[in-house]
């Protein structure tokens, strides 16, 4: 059953040996030429599976993976019951607390050199049991560079500004508070400078 139609993949709710699972299928894009299309879909499927697994190992909740089918660009993983942070954000009472927790998890990823690559509030799920899950690592990678970590944080900041603009600043500050708990004050300072630098590179940034 089609569970969710995404911009690059469809999620199917299926049964896997009696267990409810999600099959994430990266579908063909007719607008891209075949060669480029398959190459992108294959590498993203592979990378995503690898990153989901690595993140889980270091204590960042991600769906458990049952099978990877690289040829058919599909990942079979746990079905998590809950809501996207994007949907919950506007009526959360404990926004700051949740954002701090999100920040801690990003800190964990980054201190283990894992880059999410697409940090938006659509890619964070609050499960029914309160656990914060990270999904959709398709654009992620491994990197120790401050630049890549800075871009990751810049992305969540921009995602907040474009969809939750009423309390974007407050939420981003809370994320950084949680982040600091994991990475320490010195690293936080460095990354803040980096984020400013990344923003200043954008076209027509007001100086």
């Amino acid at each position: 059953m089609l569970f969710k139609k995404g911009a690059e993949a469809n999620l199917y709710l299926e049964t896997w040996y009696g267990k409810k699972i999600i099959r994430k299928y990266r579908y063909k894009k007719a607008y891209r030429i075949e060669e480029l299309d398959f190459q992108l879909r294959r590498s993203r499927t592979f990378h995503e599976a690898k990153l989901l697994l690595e993140a889980r190992k270091i204590g960042v909740p991600t769906p458990f993976i049952y099978m990877i089918d690289v040829k058919n660009t599909s990942i079979y993983m746990d079905y998590i019951e809950g809501n996207q942070l994007k949907k919950d954000m506007n009526h959360l009472i404990n926004k700051n607390l949740i954002c701090e927790k999100v920040g801690e998890k990003i800190g964990l990823l980054h201190s283990n050199d894992i880059i999410h690559g697409d940090l938006t509030t659509s890619n964070i799920i609050i499960a029914k049991n309160g656990i914060i899950y990270f999904i959709d690592f398709g654009l992620g990678g491994f990197s120790s560079s401050l630049e890549d970590k800075g871009v990751d944080l810049h992305l969540i900041k921009k995602a907040l500004e474009s969809t939750h603009y009423k309390f974007a600043d407050e939420c981003f500050d809370a994320i950084l508070t949680g982040y600091k708990r994991i990475v320490g004050a010195e690293f936080l300072q460095n990354i803040k400078v980096k984020i400013t630098e990344i923003e200043s590179r954008g076209r027509y940034f007001q100086r």
């Binding site: 030429i33 190459q39 690559g117 940090l119 654009l139 992305l155 921009k158 995602a159």
Partner: peptide, 15 residues
């Protein structure tokens, strides 16, 4: 042409 030469494809989130 329709010969594809591999080039860096750089999407970082929405940018």
């Amino acid at each position: 042409s329709n010969k594809f030469v591999e080039l860096p494809y750089t999407v970082k989130g929405m940018d």
